[in-house]
């Protein structure tokens, strides 16, 4: 690791001031489980490291029936996992958190860090996008809310501009009669980067089981986590049967845009999108 100055703001205002002062030369340190590894490998060597962990109020999980769930950006993945609200009301987020790294990593890695690191395979992203989450971003001059599906712009890249800080993730209340699953496909069961991640969240029109709303979000098969919007549209309003499942899975696969890398080929990934979208829908309908 190259030398750097370590700064520890005690408030959001102070952090934003430092971000503005050091412009492109500073990086935000949250959990550090991605950033410190990148710094050790000298993939990035910031001159200033702004540790935001001491800022109070950014690590809370708050739920209300009216508003839904608010997650502070510094909430650890372990805190998510251990929250009964997350487990009971947002099971796909719980499942995604469980899949992230190891216990040691989950104990310090943060939700905000997982999102801002912007890996195409970021574990929490497909579930959060499926849940309709949005990101609250602050800078010295303004505060804005960005839908999480519009948050990522490329591998390692987000809409965050210099001087901006992600402070909170908001998830609306889940519609009644809805079910979701998250699948991570990887060769090992733990400590592995996803080859394909698939989150499926659906709500149904009463007992007739026609789909009212459907979200299919793919991870690790495009430059960013990605909604398979055409596949969603194809399914909406219909009853889910084998024929439809097949079509939806094929379209979702066409919407993916994977690369070949050390973990898998693009062709394999496209096939696996089909398999896991189908499996996801099947599981939701069978319940």
């Amino acid at each position: 690791m190259k030398p750097f100055e370590y700064l520890e703001p005690q408030s959001i205002e102070e952090a934003l001031l430092l971000l503005e002062q050091f412009k492109g030369e500073a990086k935000i340190l949250a959990g550090g489980t991605d950033l410190l590894v990148q710094m050790k490998q000298q993939k990035t060597s910031p001159k200033y490291l702004i540790d935001v962990k001491n800022i109070p109020g950014l690590n809370s999980i708050e739920f209300s029936e009216e508003r839904g769930l608010d997650i502070g950006s510094l909430t650890t993945i372990a805190d998510l996992e251990e929250s009964p609200t997350v487990r009971d009301r947002y099971p796909i987020l719980y499942a995604a958190g469980k899949e992230l790294g190891t216990q040691q990593v989950r104990n310090i890695a943060t939700v905000g860090g997982n999102l801002c690191n912007a890996s195409p395979a970021a574990e929490t992203a497909p579930a959060l996008i499926a849940l309709g989450a949005s990101a609250k971003i602050v800078s010295r001059s303004k505060e804005k809310v960005v839908k999480l599906e519009d948050f990522f712009t490329g591998p390692g890249e987000t809409v965050l501009k210099t001087g901006e800080l992600l402070v909170q993730i908001h998830i609306p209340n889940v519609a009644p009669n809805s079910k979701g699953v998250y699948f991570k496909h990887a060769f090992r069961r733990k400590l592995e980067t996803a080859i394909v991640g698939v989150a499926v969240l659906a709500s149904f029109n009463g007992k007739g089981k026609s789909l009212k709303d459907l979200r299919i979000v793919l991870g690790a098969v495009a430059p960013t986590p990605k909604r398979a919007i055409r596949a969603e549209e194809l399914a909406k309003g219909n009853r889910v049967d084998g024929n439809l499942l097949e079509k939806v899975a094929v379209v979702a696969s066409e919407e993916s845009d994977p690369i070949t890398d050390v973990r898998a080929t693009a062709e394999y990934r496209r096939e696996m999108v089909k398999v896991f979208v189908k499996r996801g829908l099947n599981e939701i309908v069978d319940h």
């Binding site: 370590y6 340190l29 550090g32 489980t33 410190l36 590894v37 050790k40 490998q41 540790d51 962990k53 372990a78 790294g101 190891t102 216990q103 040691q104 990593v105 104990n107 310090i108 400590l191």
Partner: peptide, 27 residues
């Protein structure tokens, strides 16, 4: 490994297992 993958450096910090290689001493 020094990159948070092998767990050989696991210590307990405030009751939680962490990789000591992924924590800066100043933190």
């Amino acid at each position: 490994c020094n990159t948070g993958e092998c767990g050989a450096c696991t210590v307990i910090m405030d009751g939680k297992a962490v990789n000591a290689c992924l924590v800066l001493a100043v933190q």
